[in-house]
């Protein structure tokens, strides 16, 4: 099983023109295939949650307290409904909650990753290409921020933003604040990677050749350098997505994320933990498993992608 990824092999002086084509053949093991299927499956399930979910966990009309605390796959004695993953204390279907929860988690994670990509890639490109004071200022800020764990930055940003938003709007603004907090906390890694790669590419003579005929810096960045950064950016974006999923879950678990009215996977785990000692394991276990599978599959894809793109690891020798 193999998939072609259209990324030209980076030039390596040791082995000139050894590969017959610019495509690297990414041999996908069974594990990688599973991860790919899982990631796509979970994302699709989240996307079509309203169609797939048997119940609407946010509609109080469908909730019946008599159905509370039902174990998985056992018909309720009162309503004779069966719940795939059981129900929580309020009679909410855990399976439906997970579908909607993944939706919230993934929305936040994708939006946050997009935000950090946007900030990080532009900051990295400008920093790497311009050099000088611009570079120093951007990288000092990034370095300073990078010394603190992202979760801490996100917490701080979240706390400050909450303080700035009027109390009445806090709940509706929470998701946006969360996206901003996570997105903002992750940009330095992106900027560092992109800057490093830009510095390497900038020194290559094809850039000098373009400068010779008067191509503008902006155009050189976009048409010459950016295409050569596609590989590393793809890798950090994938790994960044996994990080954002985990970060969102952690913040929600800590109770500073999305409001409880729109629970994400982290919120569900936070709720489920209360039942850990009383034996209702399913309220905790299913959301936790979903979160782990999601983070793991995306992380694994990023990891394999990085190995495939790293020429030295790929060759196995110099």
């Amino acid at each position: 099983m193999a998939v072609d990824i259209n990324l030209p092999a980076p030039p390596s002086p040791d082995r000139p023109a050894s590969t017959p084509s610019g495509r690297i053949r990414l041999k996908l093991g069974i594990v990688t295939w599973l991860a790919l299927l899982l990631a796509i499956g979970l994302m699709l399930a989240a996307l079509f949650a309203p169609l797939l979910a048997p119940y609407d966990p946010f509609d109080p009309a469908t909730l019946d307290l008599l159905d509370g605390m039902m174990p998985p796959m056992q018909p309720s004695a009162f309503t004779e409904k069966t719940f795939l993953f059981g129900t929580d204390n309020q009679g909410r279907d855990v399976f439906s909650s997970i579908l909607y929860g993944s939706r919230v988690s993934l929305t936040v994670a994708f939006a946050a990753t997009f935000l950090s990509l946007a900030i990080g890639v532009s900051a990295g490109l400008v920093s790497g290409y311009a050099g000088g004071v611009t570079d120093a200022v951007i990288m000092r800020v990034a370095d300073a921020q990078l010394t603190f764990p992202t979760i801490l930055i996100a917490l701080l940003v979240f706390g400050i933003a909450q303080g700035l938003v009027p109390a009445a709007e806090q709940e509706s603004a929470a998701v946006w604040i969360l996206i901003f907090a996570i997105g903002f906390s992750n940009w330095p890694q992106f900027a560092r990677t992109v800057r490093g790669a830009t510095l390497v590419e900038k020194r290559r003579d094809y850039v000098a050749a373009a400068r010779l005929i008067g191509v503008s810096p902006a155009r050189i960045l976009v048409t010459h350098i950016l295409p050569n950064l596609a590989g590393p950016v793809l890798v950090i974006a994938t790994i960044g997505l996994a990080l954002a999923v985990i970060e969102e879950a952690t913040l929600s678990y800590l109770g500073v994320g999305v409001p409880p009215t729109r629970p994400s996977l982290g919120t569900l785990i936070r709720i489920g933990q209360q039942f850990l000692f009383s034996g209702e394991w399913w309220i905790l276990a299913f959301p936790a498993a979903t979160l782990v599978l999601l983070a793991l599959s995306v992380n694994l894809l990023g990891d394999r992608l990085r190995d495939a793109l790293n020429p030295r690891l790929r060759d196995g020798r110099r």
């Binding site: 000139p16 610019g22 295409p227």
Partner: peptide, 12 residues
Amino acid sequence: FQDPYASLNPRW
């Protein structure tokens, strides 16, 4: 340029 591997944009 000196290095024929770096003077052509590998993506073009």
